[in-house]
């Protein structure tokens, strides 16, 4: 094993002189290291892409994915048309977009504000303890977050006890669709704002300290420095993250919504992911939901790709 000398750039510089076969043989051990990755991606990512053909047929369990001998019933774009003309199209896309935009509108600025305030704290131990507390919810599982949430807003939970203490009437939060957005967004912000502030804190830390020193000598006070130095300093990061968040609007927290919702909440809470799970796996309408998933993944791909292009153009950051 030790006698072959692959894995070295000096040898590789001569790769132009090798025939493809020699080149392949020279790198065989390196390629072997990539084999598990390639095989797993084929099995679990590329074969399912081939399986997307079922979106254009009436797939039944046990029948082949692609065949033209009559064993597969091809229906063209029927499932796509069915979905787009059904009431569920506006409902699930509407809910997905509404929740994503609410999340951006109410949640996006919270970590920025928190990072700005945290930056004003110069007492080390105080800063460290507060950071430890606010990062913690990020590490807790969705199941626990939802069960804590359900516990707190249940009829005997602290929230309703507080409402009744002030003479109000107990509110069935988890059973009424109108409270869903509020609970979803608040718990989402609770879980992520501390963790999301890390990137802004790092951004602030990388601002040239001489800027602050110069501003101090010129008599600038805290708010001036925040406005003229800190905020411009983290603006590129914020814009990039905003663009990427807008690119990701079709992705919602399916895991969490599945745990939070029940039939009375479907009108507000059903998003693409939960709808596909509910109709596809629970009701076994495979072809129809494969079509729904394909449609949303294509739109999503365009959005993410477009957002990345924008981000790469206006800031120098992108996902890839």
């Amino acid at each position: 094993m030790a006698k072959q000398k692959s894995g070295i750039s000096m040898v590789r510089d001569s790769s132009r002189k090798l025939t493809p076969l020699q080149h392949f043989w020279r790198d065989k051990w390196l390629l072997l290291l990539l084999l598990p990755t390639i095989v797993a991606l084929i099995l679990f990512n590329y074969v399912p892409m081939y399986g997307l053909a079922m979106a254009f047929q009436n797939y039944k369990i046990g029948s082949p994915i692609i065949a033209f001998d009559g064993s597969v019933e091809w229906v063209g774009l029927k499932h796509f048309k069915d979905f787009i003309t059904s009431i569920f199209f506006t409902r699930v896309f509407g809910n997905t977009l509404r929740l994503s935009f609410e999340n951006i509108l109410f949640g996006f600025w919270v970590p920025i504000l928190f990072a700005l305030l945290l930056n004003e704290i110069k007492t080390k131990w105080y800063k460290k303890i507060t950071q430890t507390f606010v990062y913690l919810p990020y590490f807790v599982s969705t199941v626990i977050v939802v069960s804590i949430l359900m516990n707190m807003v249940s009829s005997e939970g602290v929230v309703n006890r507080l409402i009744m203490f002030f003479g109000g009437k107990s509110i069935p939060f988890m059973q009424k669709a109108e409270y869903f957005d509020f609970l979803y967004i608040v718990s989402q912000i609770w879980q992520t704002f501390g963790y999301s502030s890390i990137i802004y804190l790092a951004g602030i830390a990388s601002i040239d300290p001489t800027l602050y020193e110069a501003a101090t000598i010129d008599g600038g006070h805290r708010l001036h420095m925040m406005w003229h130095i800190t905020i411009p300093g983290i603006l590129p990061t914020a814009i990039t993250l905003l663009i990427l968040a807008i690119g990701g609007v079709l992705g919602s927290n399916t895991d969490k919504i599945l745990l939070m919702y029940s039939a009375p909440l479907y009108s507000k809470a059903d998003v693409i992911g939960t709808y596909v799970y509910r109709i596809g796996l629970v009701n076994a309408k495979y072809s129809y939901t494969a079509a729904v998933g394909l449609f949303s993944n294509v739109v999503s791909f365009i959005l993410v790709f477009g957002a990345n292009m924008l981000s790469r153009k206006f800031t120098d950051y992108s996902l890839w």
């Binding site: 991606l41 099995l43 679990f44 990512n45 590329y46 074969v47 399912p48 892409m49 399986g51 997307l52 079922m54 979106a55 797939y59 369990i61 992911g273 596909v276 799970y277 596809g280 796996l281 495979y286 939901t289 494969a290 998933g293 394909l294 949303s296 993944n297 791909f301 993410v304 790709f305 890839w320």
Partner: peptide, 15 residues
């Protein structure tokens, strides 16, 4: 490629 485009839940499940 799989980072940007996924077949989705149902085809993956069937596969």
């Amino acid at each position: 490629i799989p980072m940007f485009f996924s077949a989705g839940l149902i085809p993956t499940f069937i596969t």
